[in-house]
């Protein structure tokens, strides 16, 4: 378990005595684990558990490690779990660049350096020069790409995806899938994907776990 990647070690989430999820898996860097299940099956609770926001009504046992570090013992902000939800959730009171700069680690100093990194990240998702824009003026696809760029800038140790493509149009959806999985692969990030869309699972290409069926 000192290996790279995400280890789910006997993770078990119960709600009022009912077991929702019981799982042990290893997701290697760049790999994807897809969790599928109908709504209410508790698949999102797994995500919340890993990110550190599990509602206290759930009971969780087991542990999760990323690159040998037991993240489940850390406060949420130290887990470096990059999250993408089905909504892009760009901070509405910051410009596009502001959103990106906010995501940069605090260790990176210097205004111009931070700004340059943000610009580069925008280029990386094909949105060059959009830094000064108000996020509310972007199209759905642009927002999704900014959200991706934002999460990547924060130097995450893993990606947690909560049906991130479900609100996009068909053709955009395919593009975004490619983009996200390529970037994750490129960076060697283990990915946990929660979805009820078979096509997502297919595109992800990794192992699929079905729960609640």
């Amino acid at each position: 378990m000192k290996e790279k990647g995400l280890f789910l070690d006997g993770v078990k989430i119960t709600l009022g005595g009912r077991t929702l999820i019981e799982l042990s898996r290893h997701v290697r860097p760049g790999g994807v684990l897809t969790v599928m299940g109908p709504s209410g099956s508790g698949k999102s609770s797994l995500l919340a558990y890993l990110a550190g926001f599990l509602d206290p009504v759930f009971t969780a046992s087991g542990r999760a490690l990323v690159d040998g570090i037991e993240i489940t013992r850390l406060p949420p902000e130290e887990r470096h779990a990059g999250i993408l939800f089905q909504d892009p959730l760009l901070f509405p009171h910051m410009s596009v660049a502001g959103n990106l700069i906010f995501a940069l680690p605090e260790s990176l100093k210097g205004r111009s350096e931070r700004r340059a990194q943000a610009e580069a990240a925008l280029e990386g998702v094909g949105l060059d020069g959009m830094g000064t824009r108000d996020p509310a003026t972007l199209s759905g696809g642009q927002k999704a790409r900014v959200a991706l760029a934002r999460v990547l800038l924060s130097e995450p140790r893993m990606l947690l995806l909560d049906e991130p493509f479900s609100k996009l149009d068909m053709d955009l959806r395919q593009q975004m899938r490619m983009l996200v999985f390529d970037k994750a692969h490129e960076r060697g990030l283990p990915v946990l994907l929660v979805t009820h869309d078979e096509a997502d699972a297919e595109a992800a290409g990794g192992e699929t776990v079905r729960i609640g069926e």
Binding site: G52, E77, R79, H80, F102, S154
Partner: peptide, 21 residues
Amino acid sequence: DRRYDQIAAGLGKGRARRFFS
């Protein structure tokens, strides 16, 4: 929307920073 808060935490921001920013 508390997911804003969760995203910010995922970006590595502590409680105070999340609250004030």
